[in-house]
């Protein structure tokens, strides 16, 4: 018998600190599989800001930088601009990317910053114990929306891919999920495409991954996947919102 599935090489062989059933681990693995398949571990620099994935620097075996809350796209910009031949990715949660780091996200996208952004949307602030996130669904109960998110008081959730797809600098804006094996396969293809875009200097690529937080949702891991499918996907439809080249004149250079 031959091994047909094992931990990717660039995914450090240490236990993950995430809660049981948290899908961060799946998303980490997909990124590592793409890095391995493209053979770019030695040329990749990852940036993980504050959130549950703040310690992801221990899990990815490429060079890693831990950034301040929300600032990963700016840090990645500094890395990429001074090292244009290296691969740079950020790995950010919803509070990080769509609240405190909105400006950094939008401007990295509009500059067509040639980086990959892995955006993990689980509709809550996991690390601090489950407060309302910019992506918290209307009606969703969190620690800071104990009666459910009321859009009249707390506004509406941000649909990041739809918003960023309006920007010329965005090459790829795609929303995927990790609730089923077919969705996971789709997610990996999207992440691969994002890294290939970077290789081909096409501009800013974001892959939004709908993810779970069983602990703070108060659900079992299996029920959390069901919620993702039943409640999140209808509000955040999966699909490709933009797929192009931010700098078509550069083609063939």
């Amino acid at each position: 018998m031959a091994v047909v599935f094992e931990r990717p090489k660039s995914f450090a062989d240490i236990p993950l600190h995430y809660c049981p059933g948290c899908t961060h681990g799946i998303i980490h693995r997909l990124v590592c599989e793409v890095i391995d398949e493209m053979g770019i571990e030695g040329d990749t620099i990852g940036v993980c800001p504050v959130g549950c994935s703040v310690m992801a620097y221990d899990y990815f075996t490429c060079d890693m930088i831990e950034a301040a809350h929300g600032r990963a796209p700016a840090v990645a910009t500094g890395v990429k601009r001074t090292n244009p031949d290296k691969f740079v990715f950020t790995y950010q949660g919803d509070g990080d990317l769509a609240a405190i780091g909105t400006a950094e996200t939008v401007h990295a996208a509009t500059r067509g910053e040639n980086i990959v952004v892995i955006f993990v949307n689980n509709t809550t602030y996991g690390m601090t114990g489950g407060q309302m996130a910019p992506t918290t669904l209307p009606g969703q109960v969190t620690q800071t929306t104990p009666f459910g998110r009321d859009p009249k008081l707390m506004g509406y959730p941000v649909r990041v891919c739809e918003m960023l797809a309006t920007l010329t600098g965005t090459a790829l804006a795609q929303r995927v999920a990790v609730d089923t094996v077919p969705h996971i396969r789709e997610a990996k293809k999207a992440i691969r495409k994002a890294f290939e875009n970077q290789r081909d200097k096409k501009g800013f690529s974001i892959v939004e991954v709908l993810s779970t937080c069983p602990t703070n949702w108060g659900l079992s891991p299996v029920d959390a996947l069901k919620r993702l499918n039943d409640e999140m996907i209808p509000y955040y439809p999966l699909g490709v919102y933009k797929d192009g080249n931010a700098f078509p004149e550069k083609e063939g250079e």
Binding site: I45, I65, A67, V75, V79, V106
Partner: peptide, 19 residues
């Protein structure tokens, strides 16, 4: 690079200095 804010600018410095 002209950044979108002072906050972004110093974090770009952090990124570049990291390398």
């Amino acid at each position: 690079l002209q950044a979108e804010s002072e906050i972004a600018a110093i974090n770009m410095v952090l990124g570049a200095a990291s390398t």
